[in-house]
């Protein structure tokens, strides 16, 4: 369903992606792991066309979005939802208006119908009745859940999660993991999750890919990942600093 082919991207001489190849199938949860600042967010933004690569291709169902014009990319994006690292809620709008926003922009639904959907999506993420609060009044975990409600407002096929559990306490982390699993099963979504949280990763992933030095060094199911002989993978899983892996 999603296929990345030999993706390259640099920012002012800083090589961030250096030949990414990755295939993501329909209905699976793939977790991409890697160190902070390693280019995970940049990789995710390529999938949805927010960043254009210097070279390489991004195929969404055989359409190469790197070749599309801005307007045509917008059509493809309607099939996506994205949860940003800090939720990226519009802070000039209430929670209800945030979730209603994509519906009001892209559908002809009446105000009443939209309000019903908003209430339903909030219930989906376990936050019924907070429509009139502003994002600044919410905790980090609540913001992420509202961000998720907004991401699923238009019933997308694919959801991208940028570090959904970073910065949350263990209980909220577990709650978000459950939420991702629940929503994925119920709506049969394809999920691309970025994480450096190893526990969450093994809990939700069908497939794991590790990003290292701008390349995918390893992909596989969680079991094969745990047993991987790749020192970089083992180093990351066990939390060994990088310089020690290289020297050993």
């Amino acid at each position: 369903m999603i296929k990345l082919v030999d993706l390259h991207k640099s920012f002012n001489n800083l090589k961030v992606l250096d030949g990414i190849n990755l295939e993501i199938n329909k209905g699976e949860i793939i977790v991409i792991i890697g160190r902070s600042g390693g280019g995970k967010s940049v990789l995710l933004k390529h999938i949805i066309g927010l960043i254009r690569p210097d070279a390489g291709h991004v195929f969404i169902d055989d359409i190469d979005i790197t070749r599309l014009k801005e307007k045509d990319i917008y059509k493809i994006r309607r099939r996506f939802g994205m949860l940003f690292q800090d939720a990226a809620l519009f802070d000039s709008m209430t929670v209800g208006q945030n979730i209603a926003f994509p519906l009001a922009e892209h559908t002809d639904l009446s105000k009443r119908e939209i309000a019903e959907i908003v209430a339903g999506k909030l219930a989906d993420v376990g936050l019924s009745g907070i429509e009139d609060k502003y994002p600044s009044e919410l905790s980090g975990g609540m913001k992420k859940r509202v961000g998720l409600a907004r991401a699923i407002a238009l019933d997308p096929e694919i959801i991208l999660f940028d570090e959904p559990t970073t910065g949350l306490d263990p209980i909220m982390t577990a709650a978000i993991d459950e939420l991702i699993l629940g929503i994925q099963r119920r709506l049969n979504l394809t999920c691309v999750v970025i994480s450096h949280d190893i526990q969450s990763t093994f809990k939700i992933a069908n497939k794991i890919a590790m990003l290292y030095e701008g390349k995918i060094t390893e992909t596989g199911d969680p079991e094969s990942f745990r047993n991987s002989e790749n020192p970089i993978v083992q180093g990351f899983l066990q939390g060994i600093p990088e310089d020690k892996i290289i020297s050993s």
Binding site: L50, R77, F84, A88, F101, H106
Partner: peptide, 18 residues
């Protein structure tokens, strides 16, 4: 600027709003 660094501008684009 705040909308940019908190990715609200990206969020608009993701929602297919220029």
């Amino acid at each position: 600027g705040t909308m940019r660094v908190t990715e609200q501008i990206d969020a608009l684009a993701v929602m297919a709003i220029n």
